[in-house]
């Protein structure tokens, strides 16, 4: 079985994001880029699958800032190969373009399972797994919390609203959007990452970004969220605080009389 895990870099959200002067992108100049945490879950589930049976695990990413670190970490964790897709990749890559780029490489590959994060900070709708499935013309399931594969079929535990878990069966090959791996993503020591770094291991493949198949949209402007007002702490005895709360609720028209 051949498992491909698609991972991507997103800005570390502990950073204060700033917009570029023309307002069409976040300023990536000084941003620290880290792996999308859901992709890390997808990688962990892939590693668990590999350890449970006979599988080859390939991790693939677009050439985005600091991606080598992520790919080396994946290799150190046990991925068999790491592919970096290069080309004219600058700025923000939306999920349509990302799916098309990944599909253009994947279509030339044999694969049984493609795992990727169910969503990302810049893809909160979780479009990527679905778009990728459509591009590759294979089934797709998202919000997976466990994947098991056997005899050309995969069982996928899918977490639905209200905590319901559905177990789907899907014919392989398929694309799975992983919400959470069966266990927390493992820690890989810096010394192992450095060993992976020293032994190379990242294969660069140039991809063509041209044929997208869909009409590209144009991004006009990004707007930073307005700073919300600060919380007001109510001091004093319980009675005073209660009176003040009632007063506030009245003022906002939430309580009558």
């Amino acid at each position: 079985m051949r498992i491909v895990v698609a991972v991507k870099q997103i800005p570390d959200l502990v950073e204060e994001l700033e917009l570029t002067a023309d307002g069409t992108d976040v300023d990536r100049e000084l941003l620290k880029m880290v792996v999308n945490e859901f992709d890390d879950q997808a990688l962990e589930e892939g590693l668990c699958l590999k350890e449970a049976g006979d599988a080859e695990l390939v991790v693939v990413a677009l050439d985005e800032p600091d991606v080598d670190q992520t790919l080396h970490a994946a290799l150190a964790k046990g991925a068999d190969a790491a592919i970096k897709l290069t080309g004219a990749l600058t700025g923000w890559i939306d999920s349509h373009r990302r799916a098309a780029l990944l599909a253009s490489w994947l279509s030339g590959q044999s694969f049984d399972l493609v795992l990727t994060g169910v969503q990302a900070a810049d893809d909160l709708d979780g479009q990527l797994p679905g778009l990728l499935g459509a591009q590759l013309e294979v089934p797709h399931i998202s919000v997976a919390v466990r994947v098991e594969a056997e005899d050309g079929m995969a069982k996928v535990w899918q977490e639905l609203a209200g905590g319901t878990v559905v177990v789907d069966e899907v014919r392989l090959p398929a694309v799975i959007g992983v919400q959470a791996a069966r266990q927390a993503p493992r820690y890989v020591s810096i010394s192992r990452i450095r060993q992976a770094q020293q032994s190379g291991g990242i294969t660069e493949v140039e991809v063509q970004a041209a044929e997208l198949g869909t009409e590209q949209f144009a991004l006009r402007r990004l707007v930073a969220p307005e700073a919300a007002g600060h919380a007001e702490m109510l001091a004093g005895g319980a009675g005073e605080v209660a009176d003040r709360i009632v007063e506030l609720l009245r003022a906002k028209g939430l309580v009558r009389s």
Binding site: D12, E15, E16, K32, V34, Y187
Partner: peptide, 15 residues
């Protein structure tokens, strides 16, 4: 992991 990325255990931006 926070120390590896941002250089501090609080996970805050190094800046």
């Amino acid at each position: 992991q926070a120390i590896a990325v941002q250089g501090n255990s609080f996970g805050k931006s190094e800046r």
